[in-house]
Simulated assay, not measured.
Amino acid sequence: MDAAYLSYSIDHVHLRSRDPVAAAGFYVTVFGAREVDRVGDPVSRVVLDLGGLRVFIEQAPADIAEAAVPPHRGIEHIGLRVADIDAALADLAARGIPLAIRLTQVNPALRTAFLDGPDGVRIELLERGGRA
């Protein structure tokens, strides 16, 4: 089949964690993700819906390497779009969640800030569209 006729769409992001339940709790508490499923007893995977993105958080084997410190090759971060980045950052600050990279005006139509989630996952908050 010709590649021009193929269609791709995002299905999920797959994360590994030493404690998938605790990691999932972070995404639920901080970003309002919704827990969809837990697999295994004890839990070996938690499935979340994070703003329409399915996130699998799987139990990492004991011998797996620690996450690389950004910047690095491979998946560098997860980007979460917000309508009002100032309100989002005020909410994070009120809950004691520090930023890894402060608010930056990348260009007139894009403002970003970064925080670190569980297991070395870097998370970007971004507001597109510009502000007066």
Rank of each mutant, 00 (worst) to 15 (best):
Y5H: 09
S9Q: 12
I10C: 12
H12V: 05
H12S: 12
V13R: 15
H14W: 05
L15M: 09
R16L: 09
R18T: 03
V21E: 08
A22M: 01
A24G: 03
G25N: 01
F26P: 01
G32A: 01
G32W: 04
R34I: 08
R34G: 04
E35H: 01
R38Q: 11
R38T: 13
G40N: 10
G40H: 06
P42C: 05
V43F: 07
S44F: 08
V47T: 13
D49P: 04
L50R: 02
G51Y: 01
G52D: 09
G52L: 00
L53T: 09
L53E: 09
R54S: 13
R54I: 15
F56M: 15
A60L: 02
A60K: 08
A60M: 04
I64Q: 13
I64T: 13
A65I: 03
A65M: 08
A67S: 03
V69Y: 02
V69R: 14
P70N: 04
P70Y: 01
P71R: 15
H72A: 11
R73H: 10
G74T: 10
I75K: 13
I78N: 11
G79F: 07
L80C: 10
L80R: 03
L80G: 08
L80M: 15
A83D: 15
A83Y: 07
D86H: 03
L89F: 02
A90V: 06
D91Q: 09
G96E: 10
G96C: 08
G96D: 11
G96K: 00
I97E: 10
L99D: 00
L99E: 05
L99F: 06
I101F: 14
R102G: 15
L103K: 09
T104C: 14
N107Q: 15
A113M: 12
L115T: 03
L115S: 03
L115H: 05
D116R: 10
G117S: 02
P118M: 00
D119R: 00
G120D: 00
G120Q: 00
V121H: 01
R122V: 03
I123S: 02
L126N: 15
E127G: 04
A132H: 14
